[in-house]
Amino acid sequence: MTGGYYSIEQVFHVKAGDFASAGEASSQIKKILKQLGIDSTLVRRVSIAAYEAEMNLVIHSVGGELKLKVTPQSIVVTAEDKGPGIPDIDLAMQEGYSTAPEIARELGFGAGMGLPNIKRCADRLNIQSKVGEGTLLEIYFDIKAR
């Protein structure tokens, strides 16, 4: 129990460059949220954001963790990696900006829409990054009382 609220957490390890299992963590997240009875439109927003965050870990990072935290009021998806970090976050947030390598582009990734999509889906977004250290992405969603 944190802050008087019940919460659950699930951590998924995401490997760099592992396109074979890419997307598994976010599809698990989707399944969990459906089982929790979260409103289907919100489930959709979270899954889209989680998928983009997961793919960024696969494509751009040295690997990291995707974490889901649910409380009765909120859903937080966190993507954390240990490098290489984003030099210019504002630039990375721009639609169409991408540094995706050739191999990722061949597989149809690298449209530069991931981060903007995450922002569009989220109620709040927090990005921290340091070159050489890593990136932390915290994606917040409010669960509105029905």
Partner: peptide
């Protein structure tokens, strides 16, 4: 869905 109540479901 596991439960109508989200805390119970969790």
């Amino acid at each position: 869905k596991l439960d109508d109540d989200i805390v119970e479901a969790m």
